[in-house]
Design a protein around this nucleic acid. Structure first.
Lengths: 124, 124
DNA sequence: TCCTTATTTGGCTATTTAACCAAATGATCG
DNA sequence: CGATCATTTGGTTAAATAGCCAAATAAGGA
């Protein structure tokens, strides 16, 4: 795998990591309703002001949300709403389910031999 | 927010966290082709055998992949293929884009006042 | 049975992350 | 200008994570 490909996966992982926190997930859903200032988000999250601010900063740096300053307040918005579509699949994972992809491409058959180990299973 | 709701967000975050690593993301894509044993995955990932094994364990415990032991080998499969659908949206985030949801629900308008701060913006 | 192969487990250390507190910034208001 | 409100930044500490190595398992094969 070449370096640019590695960088791609690192970048993707960074986005997911930004989302991978209960409070931040909750905030994303809250922002799906429309923009909110930090103090509004603070109300329902049981955490310190600075903690909330830092979570929002993580989401912003990942490119998931947007901010706009108006007056004394910072208004956060969901910049990329498609992240909300993740929830359905996450629920499927939690349900232990084997939910198919939304758009099913050609998933190739299992059965390729292990090139390193050189062999396929022997029994069954 | 009640405790069971918090637990839900924690659970969701756990799934995303399992996915939020470059190597694991890569493995998920690789497993989308069909099942692979650990040694096959090892070939292309530049890491220790035990490291690869641990990454797979994380994915398994999250419920994203499945294992089946056959002979000496452990065959990992993607249990919930819909996680592959995340990639499109992640790319949109990376592109700084404002990609809409796949299925657009009624996203409410911004403009609700800050109940805590008691006011809406003054200028502009 | 002993050896080899495939994979997991158990430390261990370095790095990252989360949370809180206190102090800094920035805007509006009196 | 000085006070106040909304939010961010910096510091600190505790906890979680990633990676490597070495040892433990588990299944076949000689």
């Amino acid at each position: 795998m070449d370096e640019s490909r590695k960088a791609l996966y690192r970048a993707r992982a960074r986005v997911l990591k930004a989302l991978a926190h209960p409070t931040r997930l909750w905030m994303v859903e809250k922002l799906a309703e429309g923009e909110h200032c930090v103090c509004e988000l603070l109300e329902t999250v049981d955490a310190d002001f600075s903690t909330v601010s830092k979570h929002l900063s993580v989401l912003r740096q990942a490119g998931i949300v947007d901010v706009q300053k108006r007056g004394k307040q910072m208004f956060y918005r969901l910049k990329v709403p498609c992240v909300l579509d993740f929830m359905g699949c996450i629920e499927a994972v939690l349900a232990g389910g084997t939910k198919d992809r939304l758009e099913v491409p050609g998933m190739t058959t299992p059965g390729t031999a292990c090139r390193r180990c050189g062999q396929r299973e022997k029994k069954l």
